[in-house]
């Protein structure tokens, strides 16, 4: 292994610690009593959220996609916490995001047509979190980083499972 992997402050190791901690927490809070589909589904969701969260938080808010993911996760947790606050905040946030995306879409259509792969970039925008409000350059940049993090996530989950 390269020395990068041995670095305790590297992104991979940070992600691994976070993810494992989250998994232990999940297991500690709800020890598996039965293998009913509902419970497994619930646990799956928790693990998925934990994985996403650990990925987004290990990246910190340096990247647009991680910020978008964190915002998504936070709004999700708030939704669970209180419905009243959720309504207010999500509506304002949604309004802001919709404004941004609408504005971005205008410029996006022009740039996409110029380059000639508008359909593909739209597909990529849907996949990368926070990609709706990005131009092509940033989108590609974020996609590259997102792919790196996803591969890390997949590797760690493979090892963990």
């Amino acid at each position: 292994m390269s020395p990068h992997h041995l670095n305790p402050s590297s992104l991979k190791s940070r992600f691994t610690t976070r993810f494992l901690r989250a998994l232990t927490n999940i297991n500690a809070q709800n020890p598996i009593s039965s293998s009913s589909p509902r419970e497994i589904l619930q646990r799956y969701r928790r693990i998925k959220v934990a994985a996403d969260k650990s990925m987004a938080y290990s990246v910190r808010s340096r990247r647009t996609w991680s910020r978008a993911m964190r915002w998504k996760l936070r709004s999700r947790s708030w939704r669970q916490a209180s419905s009243v606050r959720r309504l207010k905040i999500t509506t304002t946030c949604h309004q802001a995001i919709m404004k941004k995306t609408a504005h971005e879409r205008e410029s996006k259509t022009t740039t996409g047509e110029e380059v000639g792969f508008g359909v593909q970039t739209d597909g990529l925008r849907e996949l990368v979190p926070g990609g709706e409000a990005m131009d092509i350059c940033n989108l590609l940049d974020e996609t590259a980083h997102y792919i790196k993090c996803l591969t890390t996530q997949v590797q760690r989950e493979q090892i963990a499972s």
């Binding site: 497994i40 799956y44 998925k48 996949l127 997102y146 591969t151 996530q153 989950e157 499972s161």
Partner: peptide, 16 residues
């Protein structure tokens, strides 16, 4: 990217 995301889903399913 899609395959990676699905892989993550599947692996977390497996973990669950």
């Amino acid at each position: 990217v899609q395959s990676l995301q699905r892989q993550v889903e599947f692996l977390s399913m497996k973990l669950a």
